[in-house]
Amino acid sequence: MRAFQLLVSILLVAIVGYTAITIDRHGWDLLPIFFGDIAKMNWPGQFNFDFLGMLILSGFWVSWRHRFSPIGIGLGLLALFGGVLFLSAYLLVASWQSRGNVSTLLLGPDRTR
């Protein structure tokens, strides 16, 4: 679990730094570029479409883990729109809360009792 926590910590720090530099250089105008590449049917668009699928699955999993409660749906939307910036922080906190129990981490605390 420590290696996993180290990995998500590194991802969190890296994406925060990368995002800050990107926003500084290009502004906040992500969505038109993201969906524009998908509409062009090229390799960057294919990557974005694949990534969008991963974001949807991530959001669905987070919502499911919280039994689709209002908070769970809100966290799922954050996962969908926040990507690894949200998910790395979420997994870091959830891994601490699970105290090393992988089943609890993946399924949620009330599914492993």
Results as ranks from 00 to 15, higher is better:
Leu105Glu: 10
Leu106Val: 12
Arg113Pro: 04
Gly72Met: 03
Leu7His: 03
Trp28Tyr: 13
Gln46Ile: 13
Arg67Phe: 00
Ala20Phe: 11
Ile71Glu: 08
Asp37Ile: 06
Leu80Met: 07
Leu107Thr: 03
Ser58Val: 02
Gln97Phe: 01
Ala3Leu: 13
Leu57Trp: 14
Leu85Lys: 10
Leu7Ala: 12
Ile73Asp: 08
Gly72Ile: 02
Leu106Ser: 13
Lys40Pro: 05
Ala39Asn: 03
Gly74Trp: 01
Leu12Gly: 10
His26Phe: 15
Gly45Trp: 02
Gly45Asp: 03
Asp50Thr: 12
Thr19Arg: 07
Ser9Lys: 10
Gln5Phe: 09
Leu12Gln: 12
Pro32Phe: 01
Phe47Gln: 03
Val62Gly: 10
Gly83Ile: 06
His66Ala: 05
Arg113Ser: 09
Asp50Trp: 11
Leu75Phe: 06
Ile23Ala: 12
Gly59Thr: 01
Ala89Lys: 09
Val93Ile: 13
Gly27Thr: 15
Trp64Met: 11
Pro109His: 08
Gln46Met: 13
Ser63Gln: 00
Ile21Gln: 13
Pro44Thr: 08
Arg99Met: 05
Phe60Gly: 08
Tyr18Glu: 08
Ile56Gly: 04
Tyr90Ala: 06
Arg25Asn: 15
Trp43Gly: 00
Leu106Ala: 05
Ile10His: 00
Leu106Cys: 07
Met41Tyr: 15
Gln46Val: 11
Ile73Thr: 01
Ala94Val: 10
Phe60Asn: 05
Phe49His: 01
Gly72Ala: 03
Gln46Thr: 09
Ile33Val: 15
Gly17Cys: 08
Val93Asn: 10
Gly17Gln: 03
Ser103Phe: 06
Asn101His: 07
Thr112Asn: 12
Trp96Asp: 06
Met41Ser: 14
Ser95Asn: 05
Ser95Met: 03
